[in-house]
Design a protein around this nucleic acid. Structure first.
Lengths: 341, 341
DNA sequence: CTGAAAGCGCTTACAG
DNA sequence: CTGAAAGCGCTTACAG
């Protein structure tokens, strides 16, 4: 059904109906309520494309998933992050355009999305330290919110991030307070901004405790079971092996557990493990006493907030860049204890 | 830049430019090539909304992620499945509209997406045995492809599925051939169609071997680490405990491993574990010799094929429903062996 | 408070 | 092979 038909059905002009449905103030409240009810009843919904064309801007935010870059992996945090974005979009009556694009084609993809008028703004994911995307988007003039930060970017921009530096600072501090001196870190790819911040936090805690970092206890790679397994095997095979390991993701911790078992080490006794936990609903490291002690970070919430900021920017509700820093929560589980001996 | 401007720029009428860019046969091949090149050079892209309005149908497929139903979890297979959908859409120049919706609001959501003209068709995920969505979509007249099957649905419809029945049949057979007689199954939620088929395959293999199923060795629940852990603890605590466990997902197998370790059982020696593996890029159970023996199923490929079938239906390339059955591959890893003793 | 008319940026019969 | 004109279904100044 189109506006014309519906208007005829209710005996009003298309103009009035449109204004009523869009909540314009000129139209009588009683008629507005009546028309809204009638629309619901007859299932009339304005055509979104006609609407966008007439209004001049799409009520749509873009989410771009790059594939085939340095990280071939499709990160499962996308699922939970997108769920958060989706919830906010549902509340604000915005649509989501999802685009999968080879990593190197991203500039062209952003341009295309913008010039086709498909999106009013975009969320930038997994930023690198010197990520070129913010500058590109500034040039194009497409509003964006970064999930994370781009330390190398000049000028203000909007972002939503978890306090990775503090999370790893506190985590390392916690292990130090337990008495650990040999603390390893299995970090994410340190060309990614969040991984740098995590390393910084880890290093700061060591420094404050008068401990000097040992490169043999530091690894930076894609956060997978394989990294955890391989890294733990290597580090636990050292003459002076670590008594505690900081992991950047629960999948990494799972790999560490596997290696430890094979080597006859019991986690939470012979070896402490503390992991960053994106709190993906699927992994559910949140029983009464969690298996892994963890720095827990609300990814889904981050998705909601990123979408909220972007929609504010697109609708002109806010014109200045804004930043939001979420805190990770340190949750003590069964995997941490004072060092053995 | 809009068509009018671009046409002026290249000294042609908008009509001819539009026809050239859309590859209509009336336009001289030489001019077509020239205009396509010019469009690329000047970055002209037709406005998608105007285009959709004029063409009468959107080049967009819908993906709906329900939340808050029986499964509150945001399934990580969405990420890989969507990546597959996205790759096919990129090839076919289709867009993806992603909608997150409370489970019970799905009917309204599909209607809204259709009547707003936002999508030309939709992919139905995680169908239940008696899922009402196909009937609803038939009624609305919105093209769809089911990822999985809806056994209870009357009449033909398009689907892409993996042969779950055969996968679990073969898996159980394989364990039986190794000499196992007490084989447990930690299945997914059996109101979901794929979980039923898996159970059927498991039961068929037992029957053929003259083994009678034991309800104490069968569990049906959301596929999480917790299910694996809890199920394994319970079953391995039985007087007549199983010597092998079939799992419906790698996360479940991870939970089983955890329980087995705690109970001092070594997997691949004291206990065999065979898991269904959706081959999510993040889990990467695919080293030279995989940790878990698995029935491996290409989720990303399923996403590609579901998108392909849907786009064929939307564009009218195919008018009859079509079905595609993918086979899971049985990969032998380190977690299976003859029963102990 | 309400409506007739113009316009959003395309595509495509229709006429040449 | 090419172009002027109508139309896709909305919204919104403009006029009452």
């Amino acid at each position: 059904m189109k506006l014309k038909d519906f208007a005829k059905l209710v005996g009003m002009s298309p103009t009035t109906v449109s204004r009523a449905l869009n909540g314009h103030s000129e139209v009588n409240e009683a008629t507005r309520a009546r028309l809204v009810a009638a629309a619901r009843q007859h299932g009339y919904q304005p055509n979104a494309h006609a609407r966008t064309l007439a209004m001049g801007h799409p009520d749509t935010i873009g989410c771009v998933i790059p594939i085939g870059g340095q990280n071939e992996i499709v990160n499962p945090i996308y699922a939970d992050f997108l769920a958060g974005v989706g919830e906010e979009c549902a509340r604000r009556r915005f649509e989501i355009n999802l685009t999968v694009v080879p990593h190197d084609d991203q500039p062209a993809a952003y341009r295309a999305l913008a010039s086709k008028g498909l999106i009013g703004g975009v969320i930038v994911q997994f930023p690198r330290h010197d990520d070129p995307r913010p500058a590109l988007l500034d040039r194009i003039g497409l509003p964006y919110v970064v999930h994370g930060r781009v330390t190398g970017h000049q000028g203000p921009y909007s972002w939503v991030d978890v306090n990775n530096q503090r999370a790893f600072h506190r985590a390392a501090q916690f292990l130090i307070q337990l008495g650990h001196r040999r603390i390893a870190i299995l970090n994410g790819d340190e060309t990614l901004d969040f991984a740098r911040r995590r390393r910084d936090g880890y290093l700061a805690a060591l420094r404050e405790a008068g401990l000097s970092p040992d490169p043999a206890l530091m690894s930076s790679a894609e956060m997978t079971v394989a990294q955890g397994y391989g890294g733990a095997r290597r580090m636990l095979g050292l003459a002076e092996r670590p008594t505690a390991i900081l992991c950047a993701a629960t999948m990494v911790a799972t790999g560490v557990r596997q290696a430890a078992e094979e080597m006859g080490l019991r986690i939470g006794r012979d070896l402490s493990v503390l992991t960053f936990d994106d709190d993906l609903s699927y992994y559910a490291n949140r029983d009464a006493v969690p298996v892994f002690s963890a720095m827990r970070s609300p990814v889904r919430r981050a998705g909601e907030r990123a979408a909220a900021l972007l929609i504010d920017a697109i609708t002109g509700r806010r014109t200045e860049p804004v930043q939001e820093l979420l805190e990770a929560e340190l949750v003590i589980g069964q995997s941490t204890a004072p060092p053995p001996g």
